[in-house]
């Protein structure tokens, strides 16, 4: 899979003769992206996608809500272990009822700093989804009102949807049962 372009920009190899910035056709989306210089727009298939640096995530979500994206439908993450340099990517799905468009936000999250601003102040519905993402990937959503495990037991160790969490290796309660050697 392709290297994340935002990350390359962060490494400090920005050149002066950057090509003109691509903007979406839809007037609402174009207006939204014009406000944010370092948010990259791209088409994934035919779906509008925004690559948002995590320090701009809250501002961008706020602007998106102002622009007509009333609903946040989904938050999840992908673990690109050994595929990309930035290990995690938080994926946020937005839906606008009035314009009938969708927008996907991709937030690269490096493995050494798993903190992402929570979207609960902007979209309260992010609550459960962010808890699930924390549960499954260990991504920490700053300022989340109740960032606890939601699907797994509270004393679970590890984050199962990470790629280095093996399947079928969970220890069972019957410690004294005979082991197959």
């Amino acid at each position: 899979m392709a290297e994340n372009p935002v990350n390359e920009a962060e490494t400090g190899e920005e050149t002066d003769q950057a090509p003109p910035r691509a903007l979406p056709e839809h007037v609402v989306l174009a207006g939204l992206f014009e406000q944010f210089a370092n948010v990259e727009w791209r088409l994934s298939g035919d779906q509008d996608t925004a690559v948002v640096p995590k320090d701009r995530l809250r501002d961008f979500a706020l602007a998106a809500r102002e622009a007509g994206f009333e609903m946040m439908v989904d938050v999840t993450a992908v673990d690109y272990l050994r595929v990309r340099r930035v290990r995690f990517e938080v994926v946020v799905g937005l839906l606008s009822l009035q314009h009938n468009i969708r927008l996907r936000l991709l937030v690269p999250v490096p493995a050494d700093d798993l903190t992402v601003p929570s979207l609960v102040p902007v979209y309260p519905g992010a609550n459960f989804f962010e808890r699930e993402t924390f549960d499954m990937f260990g991504i920490i959503f700053a300022d989340h009102p109740d960032l606890t495990r939601i699907l797994l037991p509270d004393d679970w160790i590890g984050h199962p949807l990470r790629k280095d969490f093996a399947t079928g290796g969970v220890s069972v309660q019957f410690k004294s049962s005979p082991q197959v050697t």
């Binding site: 290990r87 160790i157 790629k163 280095d164 969490f165 093996a166 079928g168 290796g169 220890s171």
Partner: peptide
């Protein structure tokens, strides 16, 4: 088991289904 990629030792870099989770 929740080791991250950057600090992962070599045995973990090559296989994802290595052994049981403890």
């Amino acid at each position: 088991v929740w080791i991250t990629a950057d600090e992962a030792p070599d045995w973990m870099r090559h296989s994802t289904d290595e052994g049981a989770q403890t």
